[in-house]
Every structure is written in structure tokens, then in C-alpha cells.
Computed example of a mutant assay.
Amino acid sequence: MNPPLFDLTYCPIVPALEVIGGKWKPLVVYHIYLGAQRFGSLLRCIPTISKTMLTQQLRELERDGLLHREVFAEVPSRVEYTLTQTGLSLLPVLKAIGAWGRQLKEQQAVPELVA
């Protein structure tokens, strides 16, 4: 039996978007993919994100298993974020979304001819 089309509990896109949806998470994942990042370096890479929002996004990505947070026993303490295997498995998806976004932007830049 096929699930009803209007019931989002059957849609596999919903849990994926719950983990990576929003404006900031893909950008955070991308910058951490480039190399282990500290909180301050992420703020510099994404200057329009607030400290509160970055903290929230990092906590959610760690909770969902995409990030690993390592605290170094130093004074002052140092924290670095890296991608987990699950986080790395997201990269082809983000690359595909990026390619689609570029294509969409190009299409919008070229006005269609009206017959």
C-alpha cells in the first residue's frame, strides 16, 4: 500500500532537512570541511552569523552526529570542530545543491524571450 501523498511522515526528505535545513548549517559544514575550525574562525568565515546562532547551529550539528567537538586540555581551553563520517557523507549532497543553485542563478540572470 502506498502512503498518502500529503503525509510528511513518509517523506525521506523531512528528516534530512531537519538535520541540515536552514540558512547556516550548510555554510558551517562547508567551512569545517575545509579544515578543523575553532569558534572564532567560523565567526570570521561567516561574518553575518551571530555568536548565539553559531553556538546553536554547532550544538545541533554535533547532536545530530555531523560534527565532532574536541576540547583540548590547555589554558586557555581550545575547542576544535571537525566533520564526522556522517558529516563527510553530506558533502556530495551539498555539492549537488550548490550546482543546482548555480544553474538556477544562471537561468534567472538570462531573461526569457517572449514570443
Rank of each mutant, 00 (worst) to 15 (best):
V114Y: 09
R59W: 02
L91V: 15
L94P: 01
A73H: 10
G65K: 00
G22H: 01
I13H: 03
I46E: 00
D7T: 04
Y10L: 04
P3K: 01
V19T: 14
G65H: 03
R63N: 07
I97A: 13
Y81C: 00
R63A: 07
Q56P: 01
P3G: 07
P4K: 02
C11K: 05
L66S: 05
Q56W: 01
Y10Q: 11
L8R: 07
K95C: 05
F72E: 09
P26E: 04
F39S: 05
P15C: 08
V71I: 07
M53Q: 12
S50C: 00
A96S: 14
G98Q: 10
A73K: 13
L83G: 09
G65S: 00
L90Y: 09
P111I: 03
P92G: 10
L27G: 03
L91A: 10
H68E: 14
T52N: 08
Q103R: 08
A36G: 11
H31N: 15
Q103H: 08
K51L: 02
C45F: 00
K95H: 07
R44K: 14
W100F: 13
K25P: 09
L43Q: 13
S77N: 05
V110Q: 15
G98A: 12
L113M: 08
F39C: 05
V110T: 12
L83H: 08
E70H: 13
A109F: 01
A16K: 10
E60Q: 10
G22N: 03
G35S: 09
K95N: 08
I97C: 09
V79Q: 11
Y33V: 04
V19Y: 04
A16T: 13
T48R: 11
L66C: 14
L91W: 11
L91E: 12
L42G: 09
L104K: 12
S77Y: 02
I49D: 04
Q37M: 14
M53R: 14
S50V: 02
R69A: 06
L67N: 12
I20T: 10
T82I: 02
G87Y: 03
Y10P: 03
W24L: 06
L34P: 04
S50R: 03
W100Y: 09
E18N: 10
E106D: 13
I13Y: 03
T48K: 11
Q108S: 07
T82S: 15
M53F: 00
R44E: 09
W100R: 11
I46Y: 01
G101A: 12
W100G: 08
G40T: 08
R44S: 12
P92F: 05
L83W: 05
A109W: 01
A96Q: 13
I49Q: 04
H31G: 03
G21K: 02
E80W: 02
E74F: 00
Q37R: 15
K25S: 13
I13V: 10
